[in-house]
Design a protein around this nucleic acid. Structure first.
Lengths: 263, 263
DNA sequence: AAAATAGTGTCTCTCAGACAATATGTC
DNA sequence: GACATATTGTCTGAGAGACACTATTTT
């Protein structure tokens, strides 16, 4: 089998526009990022509105091609940084690989295999619109009409490619990781309070449990060795007794796990 | 950037031999398979001895290039079937994606991104040597000298590429999956006995717990709804009271989980 | 003082681990 | 019978969920 590539790659938008499946005899590789944060008490994901075909006008995960000498993790971080206009992601941001999606027909143009990442961060700025995207914004995952236990949704946006599945998998990974890892602290700016941390769990697990018992939550997180390290002072009052401040210690694993309520 | 591929792809061995990094401007994509089974009471992985450079003489995971119109899962199943000389994998075999490894220098020839899979199976035959492999065999993972809690090993084989890391990740995934999923039954031929199932756990978790309490194990697996369905008859005696036979029911999740002992 | 939120203490029930006792096969 | 293995039964301690109560702030 012989194949030729003749694309002049000056930028992602141009590259996509010039795409011709006949040019290639092997898959292209991209990274896509499920960037999650808590905004207004809701677990939210960053999506960009597509300005070009295919799926023009649909919403997609930020992502793009992996450069030839670039590590996959670096590519994921770079894509999110570009989309949010940051030089680099804030300290404490967590990045992990989710899965790789490679169904032959997932992109109508040609074979594209995408390595998906999940990123947890606090305080990411509003996204900046890139050259290849009409607009970008944070979407509460509850509003996406995915089958994540939030119930029916009016006016759910149309999602491009197989990104609905990727987001679903990313949310499920997040829900499950909060049970046995200390990553909830990646969602809050430091220092933080225990009630803030509890609201991370409530937002992430919202579909299965409306509210957690504050006292049991406190008992369990404080029982984890070297997770919550007491800091100086208290948070500003929000109408009641101000909460003590903590910073994250070195613990990575919650043992015994903080299990979600089973239905 | 312009690039040309001129390889005539007549087979994997020839393809590898003709590899010239200058031919390509994008990564190649392969699948690698961590095929696990219990042999002689030990968790074992299928490895092939490399007959060509690089890493000639080292042991590697079975794997190969993803065909242009082939789904990733299918490619992984195909690679294992080829290596074991089967038309298709036995019923009950479990296949799941592990992770994707894409460090730019992980293959000294050119950029190769590999999607790794874990496969759990009972009763896979001895492997057949392929054209590209001098030989192939099942290796107890305890003998590989990985840092998996088995202690030091004499004469550990040299492992190719980053396959030591991939195997480590695959074993860790397996250990963890047995806690909350019913996949242990994928390791035993059906019908099976509860002691057989227990030995799957013992082999997989061997590094952390020598023996499990048979009565507690029995109580917990039988408490899982629709996992163990009683079958007719008993197993042949192995010197004591014969064990009852069961087949796997529809359950996929163990709740509450069967936790490994924490150190 | 009333309301709101944070933090402490206590009770109960479930369940995992330890282990004793019984059942059923082979030698 | 002795022995080996499977199966059943019992006890105990740790921990999760429920919830009553106290503490500290704003209004």
């Amino acid at each position: 089998m012989t194949a030729r590539t003749t694309s002049r790659r000056t930028g992602e938008a141009e590259f996509l526009a010039e795409y011709d499946p006949a040019d290639f005899d092997r898959p292209s590789v991209t990274v896509d990022v499920v960037a999650l944060t808590i905004r207004a008490g809701q677990l939210s994901v960053l999506l960009v509105k597509r300005g070009a075909h295919p799926f023009k006008g649909s919403w997609a995960l930020p992502g793009g091609f992996v450069a030839m000498e670039e590590d996959l993790d670096d590519a994921a971080g770079r894509e999110l940084a570009e989309e949010t206009g940051l030089d680099r992601l804030p300290a404490g941001t967590h990045l992990e690989q989710l899965a790789t999606y490679g169904r032959p027909d997932r992109d109508p143009r040609t074979r594209v295999i995408t390595v998906a990442y999940v990123i947890f961060a606090a305080d990411l700025p509003e996204p900046v619109a890139g050259t290849d995207a009409a607009s970008a914004r944070w979407w509460p995952v509850a509003d996406l009409g995915l089958d994540l236990g939030y119930g029916d949704v009016e006016d759910a946006p149309s999602l491009a490619f197989d990104h609905a599945q990727i987001i679903r998998d990313g949310v499920e990974r997040t829900r499950s990781k909060l049970e046995y890892s200390t990553l909830a602290t990646a969602f809050v700016p430091s220092p933080f309070t225990i009630p803030e941390l509890r609201r991370v769990y409530e937002a992430t697990w919202a579909a299965t449990s409306e509210e957690m018992d504050a006292s049991n939550f406190r008992r369990k997180v404080l029982a984890v060795d070297d997770w919550l390290v007491e800091a100086e002072g208290t948070a500003d009052s929000t109408g009641g007794r101000p909460a003590r401040l903590y910073v994250a210690g070195g613990a990575t694993r919650i043992v015994p796990p903080l299990e979600r309520p089973r239905e």
